[in-house]
Design a protein around this nucleic acid. Structure first.
Length: 840
RNA sequence: GCGAAAGUGGCGGAAUCGGUAGACGCGCCAGCCUUAGGAGCUGGUGGCCAAUGGCCGUGGGGGUUCGAGUCCCCCCUUUCGCACCA
């Protein structure tokens, strides 16, 4: 109807582009006609296009969110025009410390705050023109969602992948909760920046470490950006080496295990170092060292993690008074305690080889401990000397080289052998005597999911004096988070729900006796570790995932999100998927076929942040220029995967471009009306070639998220079809409208309509195909160089041979001048590319 | 310290199986149009010079090549990860 109206007005006055009017019209159309809702049960060519769901903050949608979503949306719309049934849902990650802290700050209950935030986000997202299927959204705080989060916990528990244990955990004194290792950034809380402390608490853990090897191996074949895979590899931190056992020197059966990547140096292990928290510390402390040890342990405990892990800190430690037996030499070595050995890595104890490890070297120097070199460059020994008994001068630092060029010295029967090969032999020999074995060590630790907070899904277990830990029966799910008004966390590590007897007093489902509910809630990262599995099945209330839907839509075809989640969310969701796969709930073990990171939008050279006051709120720009212009600007300002600088002024370029597209289409239609025909469908040769080149480029660019160059190509094409004030032909503008549609969907729907197409363009239009034979002209203009310097260009027919090109080039004035009086020694001819005269 | 990525006009950025550096856009300059314009149209726009021509030019310095933003070596800078990981 609006199109007819436009048609009528056109006769009197030029139709103006009014983005708000156009966008309102098409958003209403899409909603009414359910344009964005694929048939989840019958789609022939499914494509699950996923974007990382946002945390719905009170400030509303940030331009960074919109940047991320718009890129994903352009890609999704492109895939749709290429013939896919694209499923593109939206959701909200609304549980967690973030929301809870904000609620505490403003004094509004999160149960009141979150729905308002979600409503605001939804409004903003709908206005931005993203192709969301709103009939399948998720909200992690909805009991109908988190009942399945709890269900996943129960599945893992039943499979022995969830366990409760006492552990030293990261404790944020400001958020008053436990944090996962991944949430501690350089010793500080990821959320609030407070220095993280340690606490011994009983916590629920998911055994992600069991999956370390598979999580690592699959990285070799999944289609992810290399930087993200590298980040995950580093985080998993696989080290190959050996576990070696040092028996106590007092003749008892006890032993200290150490992990080392350098078993070849065991003959040089002149002392042992335990972490201050190591359980065997007490076994070694002698009467005379008691006071010194206690003082050291107290001093270490007083240090926070940031201070303790400062790399430039002087090495400090204390002698226990006890000793252990080096399994290779059989000699006693003193046992020390030092804070540079971390309980959380390896076994919490190391064999110190000061000659070949810089840290051990510094420690030995500080406390005057023996240093025994056991590795030397192969050529460094004097002729005839016995490698089993060599004196080597000590340098100022440890000798850490480790290649086939080094040999072992002073290493008993292994002396003289290559260091790399001898290491394995030493481990073999120790394994035979039950003093060690080859070992892999991972930096990755089990995932602590307990949070002593309020705003999360209650962990679905009960504690019964008779029956012990009792999982909540699945039929009793969800364990609903009650509304309590006193939800502020406390310092004692006791969760807010522990104050609500109404919540925690229950009857044991097994014995009927008195039982107590778990009052901790689970980590927000568990909510987001499986949300994509829920999307296609949100209309099933009786199962987390419908088997048919899941088979049709998962794994996710394309996932786009921020690199900041490279190790957190992406690792957890891989683990959960892998575990569910092992338990038979899904048929794949990797959740995302393809993952690409998007870049970060910055402003004035620095990150946008509330404290700097340079955060861009999109509403204002959308109101003034329209969503299409804003989308085009965001996609044009830089390479999508790199991000870029947001500048107010830059928006005018894309705005003018859309305006010109509008004008071009209208003038084309007007001209056709005047001539009474459907317009001239004949394309000039030059424009035809430009069209095919453009199709080729856009198709390639949009497929690999190079939106900025894709849009530039569309601009070039537009410039070509309206050059010298000519009126574009229908056959020229139709493909332009289709190719621009992923970027400016409302505008293009309108223009598609104006051109007489049946809406929606996204259902009716086909992405144009290029004809490879039409990409090249019959003649080419090639540069002519003399000694590599450009001296002119000549037009030659395509495929012309060297002689022909040379003849033409010699006639070129600029070229001839440089060839006068010099001898041409040779010519380099690259067909259709260049001609270079080498003179001299 | 280790790892990764990146340094190109006034600005955002194009171009890397080595082959016309600066596409596209912003800004700027000139002209046109206009009562007016933070509108529109046309043209120009890397720097320098003795200027129809030429020299220089992709962080700096070397190298390979007929030819280097692109490949190799050394150095500098920035950003982002990780950081006493045994």
């Amino acid at each position: 109807m609006a199109a007819k109206q436009a048609h009528l007005t056109r006769e009197f006055t030029k139709v103006m582009y009014d983005p708000n009017h156009v966008e309102e019209r098409w958003q209403a159309f899409w909603e009414k006609n359910r344009t964005n809702e694929p048939n989840l049960d019958a789609a022939a060519n499914p494509f699950f296009n996923l974007m990382m769901f946002p945390y719905p903050s009170a400030e509303g949608l940030h331009v960074g969110n919109l940047y991320a979503f718009t890129g994903a949306d352009v890609h999704g719309r492109f895939q749709r025009l290429r013939g896919h049934d694209v499923f593109q849902p939206a959701g909200f990650d609304a549980f967690g410390i973030h929301s809870e802290n904000f609620a505490l700050k403003v004094g509004v209950h999160p149960m009141d705050l979150i729905p308002a935030n979600i409503a605001n986000f939804t409004r903003q997202l709908k206005r931005s023109g993203i192709m969301y299927d709103w009939t399948h959204s998720v909200d992690t705080t909805d009991p109908e969602y988190y009942r399945w989060t709890q269900w996943i916990f129960l599945q893992l528990y039943k499979a022995g992948l969830a366990e409760k244990k006492e552990a030293a955990v990261n404790w944020c004194p400001s958020c008053k909760t436990v944090l996962a290792n991944e949430q501690v950034i350089s010793g500080r809380c990821e959320r609030c920046g407070s220095v993280v402390g340690q606490k011994i608490l009983s916590q629920w853990f998911f055994k992600i470490a069991k999956y370390a090897e598979r999580l690592l191996d699959n990285l070799d074949w999944i289609d992810w950006s290399e930087t993200t895979r590298t980040a995950q590899r580093n985080w998993i931190g696989r080290s190959e080496g050996a576990t070696l056992r040092f028996r106590l020197a007092d003749g008892s059966k006890e032993e200290v295990s150490v992990f080392t990547t350098r078993p070849d140096t065991v003959y040089g292990a002149t002392f042992l170092v335990l972490a201050p928290e190591h359980p065997l510390v007490e076994r070694f402390v002698s009467e005379s060292q008691r006071t010194a040890v206690d003082e050291y342990l107290a001093a270490t405990a007083a240090l926070d993690l940031v201070e303790r892990k400062r790399i430039d800190k002087e090495k400090s430690g204390v002698f226990t008074g006890g000793s252990a037996v080096n399994p290779a030499t059989g000699e006693g070595v003193p046992v020390w305690i030092a804070d540079y050995v971390l309980m959380e890595y390896g076994t919490g104890a190391i064999m110190a080889v000061p000659a070949h490890d810089q840290r051990d070297f510094e420690f030995a120097r500080a406390y005057d401990l023996p240093v025994q070199p056991v590795v030397a460059p192969a050529g460094s020994l004097e002729k005839g000397s016995d490698p089993a008994q060599v004196t080597v001068a000590l340098g100022d630092s440890a000798f850490v080289e480790h290649s086939a060029d080094e040999i072992l010295i002073n290493s008993g029967p292994f002396s003289g052998r290559a260091a790399t090969e001898a290491g394995a032999a030493i481990v073999d020999s120790l394994t035979e005597r039950d003093l060690g074995e080859p070992a892999l060590n991972y930096r990755l630790h089990d995932w602590c999911i307990s949070r002593q907070r309020y705003w999360g899904p209650p962990i679905p277990v009960l504690y019964c004096d008779e029956c012990g830990i009792v999982p909540v029966p699945e039929s009793d799910l969800p364990v609903v988070l009650p509304r309590i008004e006193q939800f502020r966390p406390s310092d004692d590590g006791v969760a807010p729900l522990a104050k609500s007897a109404e919540f925690y007093q229950v009857e044991c489902p097994e014995c009927g006796g008195e039982a107590r509910r778990e009052t901790d809630v689970s980590d927000t990262f568990l909510d987001s570790a499986w949300y994509f599995l829920r999307y296609p099945s949100t209309d099933f209330g009786d199962r987390a995932m419908d088997a048919d839907r899941t088979r049709r839509w998962l794994p996710v075809d394309a996932y786009i999100g921020g690199e900041e989640h490279a190790v957190l969310h992406l690792l957890y969701s891989r683990f959960i998927t892998m575990a569910l796969s092992d338990l038979g709930h899904v048929e794949f073990e990797e959740p995302y076929k393809k993952f690409r990171k998007h870049g970060l939008l910055i402003r004035d050279g620095s990150k946008m942040s509330k404290s700097k006051g340079n955060v861009v709120i999109p509403d204002r720009y959308i109101a003034s220029h329209g969503a299409d212009t804003f989308r085009a600007y965001l996609m044009f300002l830089g390479p999508y995967t790199e991000g870029g600088d947001f500048r107010d002024r830059g928006i005018s370029g894309p705005h003018r471009f859309l305006q010109k597209v509008w004008d071009a289409v209208h003038s084309c239609v007007e001209a056709a009306d005047e001539t009474g025909g459907g317009g001239n469908d004949e394309l000039g040769k030059d424009i035809e070639r430009k069209l095919h080149q453009t199709i080729k480029q856009i198709t390639e660019d949009f497929a690999d998220l190079s939106f900025n160059t894709g849009i530039a190509a569309l601009m070039e094409y537009l410039n070509a079809i309206r050059a010298d004030g000519r009126t574009p032909q229908r056959a020229e503008v139709v493909p332009l409208v289709i190719m621009l549609a992923p970027v400016a969907p409302h505008l293009c729907e309108e223009l598609w309509d104006v051109l007489g197409g049946q809406p929606s363009l996204f259902d009716e239009a086909d992405w144009p195909e290029y004809d490879a034979s039409k990409l090249l002209a019959d003649s080419v203009r090639i540069p002519v160089q003399v000694n590599g310097k450009l001296r002119g260009t000549v037009e030659v027919s395509r495929g012309a041979n060297a002689d022909t090109v040379r003849k033409i080039a010699m006639e070129e004035e600029g070229v001839r001048r440089h060839l006068e009086g010099v001898e041409v020694r040779k010519t380099i001819h690259v067909p259709d590319r260049l001609l270079n005269f080498v003179v001299g």
